[in-house]
Design a protein around this nucleic acid. Structure first.
Lengths: 185, 185
DNA sequence: CAAAACCTATTAATCAGTTGATAGGTGTTG
DNA sequence: CAACACCTATCAACTGATTAATAGGTTTTG
């Protein structure tokens, strides 16, 4: 992997654990094995780095979701795949969704970063709208968008709260309760 | 209001907007009209201040919840009162639940702060367990705890995500979807 | 084709600003 | 007068950012 990608890999892990504010050029540099000036070479400002991270994250989400079937016959596999994207962040050293944690820091994010974080939300919610429309046909068309938003919010919240207990079972129980209550298809 | 309370008021507002990490002795001091050394007089370390804030917040939540009726005949008023506690944070300059935002910074919090943040979660979830047990009698006893956790997680998530749009209507629509889906009593 | 010009990737050194914390002093008040 | 509620001054650590320099490769051009 080239230096630029190594920087992004290390920085991404840091943000998912400690947030954007905790990103620190010297710390990333040490982990990658270069100097902080080299990071500025690839990412002139911290905002540039944050934007690159969030942008890549949103792109990857977009690609992942595009690859999932919306066909009702695959509903279980699709919902499981979606949930496991969030679940796996927790499994990876109790980390959070990159954009979920950045959402908490939103007011301090450079606009360019904020824009990409928002794009991640849009990518998720608009995919969920399509999913809900297909899998919950009994839901009034006017309620689809808010249900999609609710599912996304609930999952982000489950991750946030479960992370506090550092116990993946807490996340699983929360998701199970969402299903039983009828929030998730 | 005495200096100590003024400090806590200003600090609380800062954390609810920008998180614990953004707390800054000089900034608080300027807003209160004292010097940073005076803040150290009341709160020797930043961890002491953070702990005091989270502790007070958990206490206030405890008091608020203790005052709410669990009687099914008051269910609507009780649930509304609970939701409005979270809603009002957003109305107050798009702020978040103090402990919700601290949950995102959990790994960087001094232990004494973490402890109080966790207590806030416990206060909420255990009250919700009592509420769910009373208001959702058809729910199996073994599912009450996870439903309570799910409600708390979903509300925290709704706040986090809605905050991103800086539009209270987004929060309201999310809560409305939770109700329609059957997550909230 | 060889020399000149330029680019890529990286370093060392340093600046300016911020931040938590502390030592020691001053004025007020019960 | 002693405890309380402050303040001045200062430290040490950290941080984002900048600058000048360098080694090695590529491109242009006389």
């Amino acid at each position: 992997m080239d230096t630029k990608n190594q920087i992004m890999t290390v920085a991404k892990a840091t943000v998912q654990s400690h947030g954007y504010n905790a990103l620190n050029f010297r710390e990333i540099a040490k982990e990658v094995g270069v100097t902080s000036a080299s990071i500025h070479y690839y990412f002139p400002t911290k905002g540039d780095l944050g934007m690159a991270l969030a942008s890549q994250y949103a792109d990857e989400a977009d690609q992942l979701l595009s690859g999932l079937s919306l066909d009702p016959k695959d509903s279980e596999a699709t919902v499981d795949a979606y949930l496991s994207a969030f679940r796996s962040a927790l499994l990876n050293d109790n980390r959070m969704c990159l954009c979920g944690i950045m959402l908490a820091e939103r007011d301090d994010l450079p606009i360019e970063v904020k824009r990409e974080v928002d794009r991640f939300t849009v990518v998720n919610v608009s995919w969920l709208e399509k999913l809900v429309a297909r899998l919950v046909p009994e839901l009034a068309a006017s309620d689809v968008a808010e249900r999609a938003l609710a599912i996304f919010s609930a999952i982000e919240g489950a991750q946030l709260v479960a992370r506090g207990s550092a116990d993946i079972a807490v996340f699983d129980r929360t998701i199970s309760a969402y299903r039983k209550a009828g929030l998730l298809p």
